[in-house]
Computed example of a mutant assay.
Amino acid sequence: MTAATRTRGPLIIEMMNLGTDEDPRMVRVGHQPGDGTGVPLLLFNGIGGNIELLAPLVGKMPEREIVVFDIPGVGQSELPRWPYRLGGIARLAARILDRLGIGEVDVLGVSWGGAAAQAFACTLGRRCRRLILCATAPGVVMVPSSPSVLWKMATPKRYMNAEYARSISGDIYGGDFRRNPALATDMFRHVKYKSRLGYYLQLLAASGWTSIHWLPTLRQPTLLMAGADDPLVPLANARLMHKLIRKSQLKIFDCGHMFLMTRADESVAAIREFLDKP
């Protein structure tokens, strides 16, 4: 394990060796200690997103212990030797929690990370107290976005070319990005792009996966957060999941896919209200 470093604010970032001496697996982990009260919060990022993308959101909850990490092949985490599935990411997250001495957590997942969060809640249910799913869907059995949006999402080019990111941000993310494409410049400055392979491995991990058949069995109270104008994950998916998850509530934002960034204060207020309920 390398020496830990701090970002701006209380988030401490370190490289963890979660493999063996013969087969090291270096994963970059961010940990905000918080003030020691409440249940820690585990974050699963969206596709291609590294720790820094969610760091502004983490910074708005300084009182809460929070764990976030770069998926293998993303940000500064090493590329995996073999392809993985979402269940493998859930188990990897559990190993990170073990290393930090954390047992039960609340879990929040964003977009692709929302699928990983669902996998964690299902396969490691005893460690998941409450679940927050943001701008996500029940996998391949979902209300799809348009083919043109899917085509633009199939490549990590927006992480590599700032002008391209501005030009397509409104089409992919909707909401405020339609009116102000320059928001993409501010958002993507936080992204530390690694490789095409890491991005495609994330796409492969979710291919063929669905939670549609076991969502009614989830025991965790669940908050579904969605944007009213989300071209990538249409709002109908959140409404469908709300019907399937018995202990769920739905919060809709007057925004698009990236409401956690563009409606950060409102999002944090909703997260706090849900997590702090008795």
Results as ranks from 00 to 15, higher is better:
R129C: 03
Q118L: 12
F120H: 00
A154N: 14
A119R: 05
G113S: 10
R127D: 10
R129G: 00
L133G: 05
Q118H: 01
A135G: 08
P156A: 15
K152Y: 01
F120N: 13
A116M: 11
W112Y: 15
V149E: 05
V149R: 03
V149Q: 08
G113R: 14
C128P: 00
G109D: 15
Y159K: 05
G125C: 11
I132P: 11
G125L: 00
L131K: 09
C128G: 08
C134M: 12
T136D: 13
G139Q: 10
V107D: 09
R158K: 00
D106W: 14
L131I: 04
P144Q: 09
L108A: 14
K157I: 03
I132T: 02
A135F: 02
V149C: 04
A137L: 12
V141M: 06
A115F: 03
I132M: 03
L124G: 07
K152P: 04
P147T: 13
R126H: 15
L108W: 05
L131E: 11
T136R: 09
K152G: 02
G109N: 12
R158S: 12
G139A: 09
A135W: 05
T123S: 02
M142F: 08
L133N: 10
G113N: 04
S146G: 12
L124Q: 07
A121K: 02
L124D: 05
S145T: 02
T123V: 12
S148D: 06
V141S: 00
W112R: 00
M153N: 02
S111C: 12
Q118W: 06
L131S: 07
M153P: 02
F120C: 14
L124A: 08
M142D: 08
C122H: 12
A137S: 03
G114M: 10
M142K: 11
G139I: 13
K157G: 01
T136N: 01
A115E: 10
T155K: 07
S145G: 13
R158Q: 11
S146M: 04
A119Q: 02
V143D: 09
L133C: 01
F120M: 09
V110S: 15
T136L: 07
L150H: 01
G114K: 07
S145R: 00
L131G: 05
C134G: 15
S145Q: 01
P156I: 04
V143R: 03
G109E: 13
A121L: 05
W151Y: 06
G125E: 06
L108Y: 04
G113H: 02
P156V: 09
